[in-house]
Design a binder for these strands. Structure first.
Lengths: 270, 270
DNA sequence: CGGCAAGTCCCATATCTTGAGAGACTGAGC
DNA sequence: GCTCAGTCTCTCAAGATATGGGACTTGCCG
């Protein structure tokens, strides 16, 4: 469904199909029956059936009492192992805590995953209006400060790819709802060095973010400060941005993203 | 490595292998190189290579700067979708909150996944010593109250299977470290209706758990109350157990696990 | 410099997946 | 209670697809 012709030299049809199944179930609001899976992915009934049985044996999918399929808990397990192996999170945490202490607002650490930003960590100040975000949830790029911060430092080609895959769903009055408008925002972000989400995702919520760049200046993620608009006022933005910039600088040093060029060409140095 | 001969009538070799790769990377403390993956799983170099490339294209694995492989963030994404589709969690949450209010200690909601218990949710009382557990982490059954609570209500056959797969790692002086000892504990748990972990996982931490049974009395999970031993005293156990039992009763009603037998035979009614 | 270990890539072969189709269920409607 | 439509399960022969031998490259260490 997502893309029927997976590019790339190395192919294992069975894997592409299996992940397409997981994708489909992951996107779906409700559990799906065999027939629905088969027709959505244009697989033969019996092929889809076999895949689902194997995936079930591995607990990658589960069946509801109605015999429908949904994602299985093994994925939850894997996901948590993945994030544990991911050291950006723990390296960044002390810096984020300092940032929260300084600003007294909620801080988030995000990375880009496919065409969405995914929340890797969140630190809340002691006295705060609880925010709805949950670690692990993901949002489209167009309505979040972190999304814009990352986009702004991505190569053109990658930006185009992401914009093409973004549906520009509206969340509030101010949600940016076209690729052109978003490009404008990206330009702005590049100029001032930080991105802002001014109630574009949720009424009354203002966020500000800066990207986390590796030695090659490729954005590996972004950090943001979010709070109610009445506290995070326009006047305060530059000051908060300053704290953010100091924070990323600290993280960069910790991660070894110091400007003197490491020879790796990969986006995520370990 | 785990089991070389996956049972089950439906087989897709490529999938079994791919999941074996993910398993291996998930178990490993450090990222692994191609050669290590290939030899651990007894795959041909070029086969392992192709799998890793395909998995990487799907972001199921990532490479470190050293070219080694570890689990990818796509799994984190999938895992969080899986848990969102999992409604036990949200159904149980209000009940858990009440439980925490009553006992003023931390409550956990767990389910059994393969041979380990995995933490699905955690509610902490306002004033509490922060516990180390993180939602999504998993522990072996032998050293946790939730593990014992679930085991006690599982069919013999399944218990044997799990015990066989448990390594009885020691965490404290009191950790149960043999299958026989654990069987004794299971017996005890069955008699009194709740399970106890008396500093068997962590010094100074005492937990008490009861299983969550579906209409067929099959354990779909367990809930526990945990706190420092000086607060969760032996005298208080029966009273806490009582709160726990009331709590599961509430959840059972909410989930439709009422005793009058629904005709489903599957363990997890939706 | 030479040798070893790890990673990448290509291609003919046989293995493993595929999908047609038949049978088993289920539930709805009459 | 019967039929019909829809969904799910299962088997098997055909052939598309993954496999792994092996050559080539790269980088490391003595």
């Amino acid at each position: 469904m997502r893309d029927a012709t997976p590019q790339g030299t190395y192919r294992v049809q069975a894997l592409d199909r299996a992940f397409a199944v997981l994708d489909l179930l992951g996107e779906s609001e409700t559990p799906l029956g065999l027939a629905q899976v088969a027709s959505s992915l244009q697989l033969h009934k019996s092929t889809a059936h076999r895949f689902l049985m194997v995936l079930e044996r591995h607990h990658m999918v589960e069946r509801t009492s109605g015999g429908k399929f949904r994602l299985g808990l093994r994925l939850f397990d894997f996901g948590n192992r993945a994030i544990e192996q991911y050291d950006l999170r723990e390296r960044a945490q002390p810096h984020l805590r300092r940032l929260v202490a300084e600003t007294e607002e909620t801080a988030h650490l995000c990375v880009l995953e496919q065409a969405r930003v995914i929340y890797i960590d969140k630190i809340e100040p002691a006295r705060s209006v609880r925010m709805i975000t949950r670690i692990g949830s993901s949002n489209p790029v167009h309505c979040t400060s972190v999304g814009k911060a990352i986009l702004a430092f991505l190569p053109e080609e990658r930006i185009n790819d992401i914009l093409r895959r973004t549906k520009f769903e509206r969340f509030t009055q101010r949600t940016i709802s076209s690729a052109e408008a978003l490009r404008g925002e990206i330009e702005k972000t590049r100029r001032r060095g930080y991105a802002v989400d001014d109630e574009e995702f949720e009424e009354g919520l203002r966020c500000i973010a800066v990207p986390l760049l590796d030695a090659q200046r490729y954005p590996v993620g972004a950090i943001s400060v979010s709070g109610p608009s009445f506290r995070v006022t326009a006047q305060k933005l530059p000051s908060i941005a300053n704290h953010l910039l100091q924070c990323v600088r600290g993280i960069s040093v910790d991660m070894g993203f110091t400007s003197t060029g490491r020879n790796s060409r990969v986006p995520w140095p370990a």
